[in-house]
Design a protein around this nucleic acid. Sequence first.
DNA 1: TTTGTGATTGTTTCT
DNA 2: AGAAACAATCACAAA
Length: 167
Amino acid sequence: MAKKAKKSQVSRSSRASTSAKAPKRTSNDEMALTVKSSEGMRRSARVSKVSEGRRPKLVKKSNAKQKKKKNKFDDKKPKKPPTAFFYFLDDFRKEFQDQNPDVKSMRDIGKACGEKWKIMTYEDKVQYYDIATEKRAEFDKATADYIKRKESGEDLETEDSDSEFDE
DNA sequence: TTTGTGATTGTTTCT
DNA sequence: AGAAACAATCACAAA
């Protein structure tokens, strides 16, 4: 009867795992199970630490413009939405600055936030996970549309009609 | 003035 | 399955 509509898209399997949300705390066991799912999801996604000595944090990107936003059209592939951690960071940053107005920048906040993030419980984190999950749904839709359009007409290419005539 | 760097973890995407 | 890249933000430094 109730057949689970499994998505043939294996690529989106990640999304399926991230479906972990709505922590129904009916029983401790239930929660534990939920948490287990979270861990399982994390294991799949989290695989870094390939080498202790290696730290490929060199993610330098050259952005010609600090912020260019005008046409609602998908300039290119939809950018990745902020993750749960980022949402938490945004909220945590406000409090952190309020308690520590002396703090210079996010470097210190990031550290503090990361540490707290680890001590946070699943229930506390699930809040942000839920937001991130919802955001990802929109992102997924945008991506599908982007791919669809791309496949439909790959002629769509550099249509940079929007030049840097902003300021 | 402008651009890049640094720090955090999570998700995405590719091979 | 695993690895690499990328997501936002703020202060500071260099060119």
